[in-house]
Design a binder for these strands. Sequence first.
DNA 1: CTGTTAGCGCTTTCAT
DNA 2: ATGAAAGCGCTAACAG
Lengths: 339, 339
Amino acid sequence: MPKKRVTLADVARLAGLSTTAASMILTGKTDTRLSAEAHEKVHAAAASLGYRPNVAARALRTDKTRSIAFISDYVATTRFASGLIRGALAAAEEAKYVMLVLETGGDPAREIKAVQAALDRQVDGLIFAAMRAREVFVPDVVLNAPVVMLNGTSARFPLSVLPDEYRGGRDAVRLLLEAGIDRDIVLLGHNAEAEEGMFRSEMITRRLAGIRDAMSDAGLRFTEELSCWDWEPNHGYTLSTELLSRRRPQAILCLNDRLAFGAYQALAEAGLSVPGDVSIVSFDNDEIASYLRPGLTTIALPHEEMGRAAVELLLQPNPQSGAMLAMPVIERGSIRNAS
Amino acid sequence: MPKKRVTLADVARLAGLSTTAASMILTGKTDTRLSAEAHEKVHAAAASLGYRPNVAARALRTDKTRSIAFISDYVATTRFASGLIRGALAAAEEAKYVMLVLETGGDPAREIKAVQAALDRQVDGLIFAAMRAREVFVPDVVLNAPVVMLNGTSARFPLSVLPDEYRGGRDAVRLLLEAGIDRDIVLLGHNAEAEEGMFRSEMITRRLAGIRDAMSDAGLRFTEELSCWDWEPNHGYTLSTELLSRRRPQAILCLNDRLAFGAYQALAEAGLSVPGDVSIVSFDNDEIASYLRPGLTTIALPHEEMGRAAVELLLQPNPQSGAMLAMPVIERGSIRNAS
DNA sequence: CTGTTAGCGCTTTCAT
DNA sequence: ATGAAAGCGCTAACAG
């Protein structure tokens, strides 16, 4: 039976009061002076009828929907996405907000449609998330709602939530140094284009800057820098295999965990042990980092925290500035103490 | 400047017609007989003003929001989730729907709140997704909107989208058989509780049923069945290591890819090669399956297709029955042809 | 201290 | 063939 929805009028009627009174009481208006008795009656009536406010009707009046949009380029591609979404979801739930998620594939046409769809539903705010970190394209439509950029930046919207890649870069090197590793360190994954080219990614640039600064502070240089476009396991494997045919470094600093995964494979095939023969440190704290044997020591991308921070920022009345989140160092077993 | 939203009245005014006419024309009512000229004027006016209908207002009248809720127990935990969400998102987008995603952690209290939140927003339908496959708890609230279960079942809601685990189970064995492997096959991951106990998972049960039927059809039995609770790499590793200390099987059939990952590690440590010494076949087509060397041959869980199917089913006027999706066999290099 | 009234933007009879 | 008017459920002025 398509039982009709309970409305505020029903509650008021049962409580023997006006809808105004019921409305004020249920929305928790404090400045009004309705009798305690009235409060009780209304709450009782609402409870007994199982009253739930109609958000659409309320939105029409107040322009508030208690919903936000999470618009991202990719959701499934990287494990990255789900952490971000999960964190955002949790924060939204705590604030009693609901989250629309929309995927654009980085396609401007879809971006526009996504933003429109969200705006049509009167969302109270929008988060633009970038899975591949970079300057994010935000369609040029009128946006009266607040916006925060997640894992990316935008010229139009100054509020960003980013990982502290520079510090993370420094930490990776520090880990090596503290273990007494100070000669023959190889960098795996460096890509000249990414660092300087037109497709430069801000965040990778900062990661590398941190790494390089820490190295030169210690008076060190990488003995080799192996470069590739995609940071996928097979590249890590080929590059490492080829590297090992020439030399056996003391440590390999991998630009992400998937690359490190490939390095592990190459090392194993070459009969070398981690960390006995070669130490490895990496970035992201991808799921696979914990699957590897020994576990991979890595500088984590704090996905969930970033997602949380984004919605907290979005919901704040007057956010002054974005957030730069620390990348936790996750020590597992891939660095050998050489001192 | 908080530019005021363009309303239907604005459009009508500019077009020199009534809001009624504008409404009919813009919503594409066909049965009405408004002049072609009127159509043109209204569309022109709407376009020039950048008119966008207010979904809340429309919902108030029509009870339709063109939005659906995707309520799942976990979103980030497993890579499983993102594929499901991604597929659902894509289908929703195509149908010009928007998707709310909500996470419950499997907690009844959160489930109720999630459903309420969705209902308060007048969603046109709900999808209950289970990441850990099983009978799903659906809070007992009045639901006037259609419901489909994704990767799970519910006594209350008959419409489910499920993978064809039985067929998948048979396929895994078939792959082995076709490669001429017919003796000393070990099953890794079987868990008596899961198969028969109170926590029995329907889907795993079906996967195992397919496996067992295919085996006995071929007159074969597993030489050993190694069991563990969590299907994580470390269990695959320990169980396999211990297995290899006793015997060297011709093949290991793993109940999921993470277990297979562990088996690979144990095999490598034992100096055995895949598939040279031992063949491996598995389930899920987890991301790691493609990272392994050689690539892992596995029976894939069609996540995206399942997500798609769920919203397509949800949006269908009169769905007669749920969907049972084939699990594609992904042949990579972990089975050696022994014939 | 409480109730009446007027919309929010839209769709939909029902009159013209 | 087109428009006036009512009303979806709610909140906010404004009276009492």
